[in-house]
Amino acid sequence: MIVDPISLMVALIVVSTPLLLAAIGELVVEKSGVLNLGVEGMMIIGAVTGYIAAVETGSVTLAFVAGMIGGLLLSSIFAVLTQLLLSNQVATGLALTLFGLGLSALLGVGYGGTPMPPVRDIFPQVMQDIPVIGPILFGHSAMIYLAVLLVAAVWYVLTHTRAGLVLRAVGESHEAAHALGYKVIRIRMLAILFGGACAGLSGAFLSVARVQNWIDGMTAGAGWIALALVVFASWKPWRLLIGAYLFGGIAALQLRLQAAEIGVPVALLDASPYLITILVLAVISSDKSRLAMNAPAALGKVFHASS
């Protein structure tokens, strides 16, 4: 067999985790009615700050924290510009991505190629040795389980708590939420910062745990795929999990097919995650009724309280 299904499943889970982390953050941002197209920029900043922290401190935990802080700081620029200075969200998000790509390359000069501290798996070796399900379910580091827990937490908060209800209200109609006395701007800024921290964490996972190296522009569009995943999931946290595993699976599979040299052009395999994302987006968006029902109604609209 060309591709070993068990190692593919393991790789799939690892590859999809950064997508999942970035996408769950963006889902919360979009649920509050804000479209932040700067995911790619926040991810790469998280990747570089996380990597630098890992090199300097030798601690994986501190590296993840540094990645979160990096993404959070970058997203705070977006929060101030779009919420306080009422700038166009699409343009500001693009600026965030361009700035993040440049700044990360600048920060990363002289880093890269340093061996990373090992990321330990949390389950004992005995459990990992169980055939088939052992490596798939138990053979991972803590961050992978945390990512799934984060999805569960976001789902719970959005659907079962008052805070989640307020957040969704702000995203559906900022005018109504404002009239009810909710602080639209403050809630949205917090959501943006949460999204930034998630994207930063996702980047740090990519550089510190998965690739274990810093390479310029290493996110290679993962931030954009995360944005597409939110649409794919129709703004529902659990569907995000399916989407992320689907895309992670394609990415992991195409790498293995390239290694196996089965005669499919490399360009086609390289492009396959992007092509399939486009294809799925087209299929999802063609279903008008479902999309209109789930997209936050105030998504991307500027809120300016007249009174």
Partner: peptide, 27 residues
């Protein structure tokens, strides 16, 4: 065409196609 036929978001599609174009360029 994806935008007019299926209402697909043109921001994401046009951006993702950059990576496809880069793969074709490399080949």
């Amino acid at each position: 065409i994806l935008k007019t036929r299926f209402r697909t978001n043109e921001i994401l599609v046009s951006l993702l196609l950059v990576y496809v174009a880069e793969a074709i360029l490399a080949s």
